[in-house]
Design a protein around this nucleic acid. Structure first.
Lengths: 143, 143
DNA sequence: CTCCTTGCAAACCGTTTGCAATCGA
DNA sequence: TCGATTGCAAACGGTTTGCAAGGAG
């Protein structure tokens, strides 16, 4: 199910016995509009722009809950030592981190699919999650 | 250069203005004999078996230094929240983490090379480091 | 003899947790 | 109503750092 509106999120939450609250909704909408790669602190900053009373611990709790429900995904991109979060996308994708500008590109495409089938064919390993982080220099910075 | 003996490590270190010390040598030999995937705490434990006076902060300092010299590599395998270290291997490889037994397999082969050339061909991105962590169920646990 | 390196302990910082008050359904 | 959820503040755990003592070259 696509989770676009508060009522959709509420359905998913209630289906698992959880409630829709304003911290949860705000965290969810920040993640959706940002398109991913946010730290908990960055999320809290945006959430607090809408409601300054919301504590960062509720942001962490919402993120943990959303991860359990497969709504978001945590990754360690190596930009710093903190975790980053993005909306769980059904399509496979991978991250390209530029060592110079720090930018993170988000690529979908055949590559992750190729990796997945390679693993099944050559390694007898049922891959559930493929976390590919490529570090290097992006085309903008290479010039 | 292969760094196998204390004298070899000393050459690398002195070549960059650093000294060979016993904490550094012990951290290096633990990493070499373990074949990778150790946390700083695990390294400190083994180092302390040889010399209980060595502090974990020296382990961290040695690891950071070795990383700067491209002798070791840090990775976040998602087993827990702490970093893990392995000897930097010139050959490309990737990690397969089993969700059930927690085992980490270490695979060399054509896969990472294929990824690297795909990135050059399709994405105009000069990949320096390719960090591929595959989570799933290994063949032992699948039965 | 120099000054790089260490052990120690305290600081640091992202994240988690216990608890009483609050709020959603 | 009533239990899930929150804000707060304190705890937590991995990692880093300041400093004086110690050790390599």
């Amino acid at each position: 199910m696509a989770v676009d509106a508060p009522s959709d999120l509420a359905v998913v939450l209630r289906g698992h016995g959880y409630r829709l609250t304003s911290p949860r909704w705000l965290v969810w909408s920040v993640l959706r509009s940002a398109g991913g790669h946010l730290t908990a602190e960055e999320i809290a900053l945006e959430v607090n722009a809408a409601d300054p009373t919301i504590n960062i611990s509720s942001v962490y709790r919402a993120l943990t809950l959303f991860e359990d429900l497969d709504l978001v995904r945590e990754s360690h991109l190596g930009i710093d030592d903190s975790a980053r979060w993005e909306v769980a996308h059904p399509d496979d994708h991978f991250h390209m981190v530029c060592r110079q500008c720090g930018g993170v590109d988000h690529h979908e495409g055949e590559l992750v699919d190729q990796i997945r089938s390679h693993l099944g064919d050559h390694h007898d390993f049922r891959a559930e999650n493929i976390d590919l982080v490529v570090t290097g220099v992006c085309s903008d910075c290479a010039n």
